[in-house]
Amino acid sequence: MSPAFDKVHQLLKQLPGLGHRSAERVAMHLIVEKPERLEPLCSALREAAEKLHRCPVTGNLTEGEFCEIYADIARRKEIVCVVETVPDLMAIERSGAYRGVYHVLHGKLSPLHGVGPNDLNFMPLATRIENGEVNELILALSNDIEGEATCHYIQDELLAGRDDISISRIGFGLPSGGGIVFADAATLRNALEGRKKF
């Protein structure tokens, strides 16, 4: 089209979730269709980038010293739910089912993608454990080889010799309101293995 447009298109395409077509649509929208949205978006992004940082304790995003959840005195700080990403944390928060605090790893161990322990946010969690702040760890990591390996790593390297801390993994099973016939074989298997006494 034009070099300026192509540059915007290329940069947008590099964002997660945007393919060739959707990047083109976003570029057209902001430049041609609704140019009045461009400036508010840019300044909001710039402002967020300036103000937001990782909570030094939990790894969640915050504008203050600590993240809101960790700073909330009503939350039980001795229970820590470990998640891979901030959106994972937000999803659990939306459920309203959890009253403890979080720890965000910002990824999972994945040798094939070059992600090792040093690339993940393990240190502040190790510090919390060492300081005796934690008595229960809930692992809410993905249900694949890399997610499971990360669980094992936490158990082996961060909780070695700490029998005083209880550790559990969230269950993987059927979605609420979903019929059994709609579930795939792997989900059904997990649901059966993770069944509860009734």
């Binding site: 161990l109 994945s110 040798p111 094939l112 090792g116 322990p117 694949d144 080889i145 890399e146 499971e148 390996a149 990360t150 669980c151 094992h152 790593y153 082996d156 390297e157």
Partner: peptide, 29 residues
């Protein structure tokens, strides 16, 4: 599929000369 995924992960760690602690979780799986 899980076996082969874990195998590829372990082989990558072996190639990269990663420490034992990094390999162990994948070896367990």
């Amino acid at each position: 599929s899980r076996y082969h995924r874990a195998l590829r992960d372990r082989n990558k760690l072996l190639k990269d000369g990663a420490p034992t602690a990094n390999r162990r979780p994948f070896e367990r799986l």
